[in-house]
Design a protein around this nucleic acid. Structure first.
Ligand SMILES: [Mn+2]
Ligand SMILES: [Mn+2]
Ligand SMILES: [Mn+2]
Ligand SMILES: [Mn+2]
Lengths: 221, 221
DNA sequence: AAATATTTTTAGATTTGTCTAAATATTTAA
DNA sequence: TTAAATATTTAGACAAATCTAAAAATATTT
């Protein structure tokens, strides 16, 4: 079966929102896909007819087994391409996502399996998210937001969620990028801001808001 | 400027048909794009409004300088991807075209320039067609159909035009593939069939029809 | 130079994906 | 347990790309 770019994007969005909850609402999807509730309802009916999701009007939706399979195959493509872009083409971690958003819709099954082999079957994408294999199986991610890191425990920055230009700007100023070693020294009770030692050198204060977008993993992993 | 997949495909088709003639007709384009004349007229008006082609109703169309630039950028993307697929992913010469047909519409300029560098700026795609550089410049192709090869002159097969399954079948039977050395020994006057020595071993008879689809270049090149 | 054949364009529909505004259902609060 | 607020769906419209059938223009024959 082949699906349109739009269908694939909707299924992927349902998959991500399902993660936390289990049942996804019209408004949540509209917000995520930057579209309007009416558009969501239309597409949900269509995907429901194709047996890709369970849909009970007014009570939200969830992926069927088939729908989940499609979502995972799109995520597989997305993350493999991100790995390729970062690893082979040396494109920055803050740029690969947007390009992969287009590449993920190229449909050739052979292409993606050959790419997987060429990259030597990577398990994680450049943001530390696990790459599903041919069968949709993937390892558990070990990344946590900086806000959850234990005090005085060195960790490595592995991704920045949703890196908009203004976020990139402040991180550049504080010399934090993917790969940087960090260690949380103290958390202030007043505003939950963090005192963070950066790359074994200077210490910076980081707002709770910003720390929530910085993801790290244990150094030894 | 960004263009839709459809617009890019139309511009590319005009570019190719323009090669021989210079002015392209509605019917010729419809045939090439496997669509209907009415659809062509609609799109021609649109592209003409965008100043990508010169269009005088009833008298055909040709690309403007801007239109040619777009067409060449799509061809550049197409051929670079074909090179990548064949060279890095080991996908067969008869399969790369279809996949590149999708990849060529991925829009990132940075992606394509990084890919170009990663591939070390190849000058020809796996079918022997020249790859335009950043500026649209490309070398001249030196491939000729087997029907034009001088007698008793060794040459290398560099591409098969339009490799449909039934063509691939007969070539497989005769053990001709991209890279094979061939030498035309004799051309029969009656039906213009060719006696061809294949890979310095056995000799086969090849119809004019088939020989027209096999492209070769001098061995020394 | 008509008459005929061919090519191209226009008119009107269709499909996919989207939207706004209005109607309806559900949830929350009084 | 009604009333108000919120969420969702429906109705109707629109843009992009396509098609069929009919009309109009151009090209080819007699
Ligand atoms: Mn991504
Ligand atoms: Mn996408
Ligand atoms: Mn090709
Ligand atoms: Mn194409």
């Amino acid at each position: 079966m082949k699906f349109s770019t739009t269908e694939e994007n909707y299924l992927k969005a349902v998959y991500y929102l399902q993660g936390q909850h289990g049942n996804v609402s019209t408004n949540a999807l509209a917000a995520r896909l930057q579209s309007k509730p009416a558009s969501i309802t239309d597409m949900m009916k269509k995907l429901s007819n194709k047996k890709l999701l369970n849909y009970k009007p007014y009570y939200g939706f969830s992926l069927t087994t088939d729908g989940k399979k499609v979502a995972l195959s799109v995520i597989r493509k997305h993350r493999l391409w991100e790995f390729f872009l970062a690893e082979k083409l040396n494109i920055g971690w803050d740029e690969v996502h947007g390009i992969a958003e287009e590449l993920e819709h190229v449909s050739s099954k052979k292409l993606i399996d050959k790419l997987d082999a060429f990259l030597d079957y990577p398990a994680f994408d450049p943001h530390g998210d696990p790459i599903p294999d041919k069968l949709g199986k993937m390892q558990k991610s070990n990344k946590i937001p900086l806000t959850n890191l234990k005090l005085s425990t060195p960790a490595k920055v592995i991704s920045i969620s949703n890196p908009k230009p203004n976020v990139v700007e402040i991180l550049k100023e504080k010399k934090i990028t993917v790969g940087t070693l960090v260690e949380v020294k103290r958390v202030f009770d007043f505003d939950h801001s963090l005192q963070v030692k950066i790359a074994a050198s200077k210490t910076e204060t980081i707002s709770k808001q910003l720390a929530n977008m910085i993801f790290v993993s244990d150094v030894d992993v």
